[in-house]
Amino acid sequence: MIKRVPRFVVAVFVTSVLSACSMLAPKAAVSVQQTQTLRDSGAAPVKVGTFTSQGADAHDQSISIRGSGMASPYGSYAKYLEEAIRLQLKEAGLFDEASKAEVSGTLIKNDINAAGFVTASGDISARFQVRRGEKVVYDKIKDAHVEWGSNFLGAIAIPRAQEAYPGLVSTLLGALFGDAEFLSSLKSAKD
């Protein structure tokens, strides 16, 4: 009897229910609130150095969302964080490749848990450093946790988790830009 089932019906069912394919995270987002916070801070422009990852919890190459791998559109998630902070600093007019001050970082934790049928969450953690020459003027670890509505169906839950990733990174940057010590380190980096 199974042989009588039209192939296209099976194909529709399988592709609809199972979504175990690879995908890319959306590109980094910009926050207007963070742009205004940075513009109003009086901070001096900085350049963005290299961001790296540390440990397996960083999931630097791929995040698993219900069995589907989500890769970074920038090649790695450390690079994603680097691009996100560069984009946000550019929007605020605080990016200068020639600056003697440099912000860099290490991605420590980076994961999405979309197993729940009602709520999904994302967690990210990174160590940020600001240097002027050899001197480290800021060195702190920042974390972010974001939750959103999920669904029993992977076809709904997976895209929601995918679309939530830029917001997770933006929330982490919000924690960094909201730190008076970080903003102060950029001011002290003025030449």
Partner: peptide
């Protein structure tokens, strides 16, 4: 289905 309507900067 949720999507994001943000531009590519």
């Amino acid at each position: 289905h949720t999507i994001v309507v943000a531009p590519d900067f």
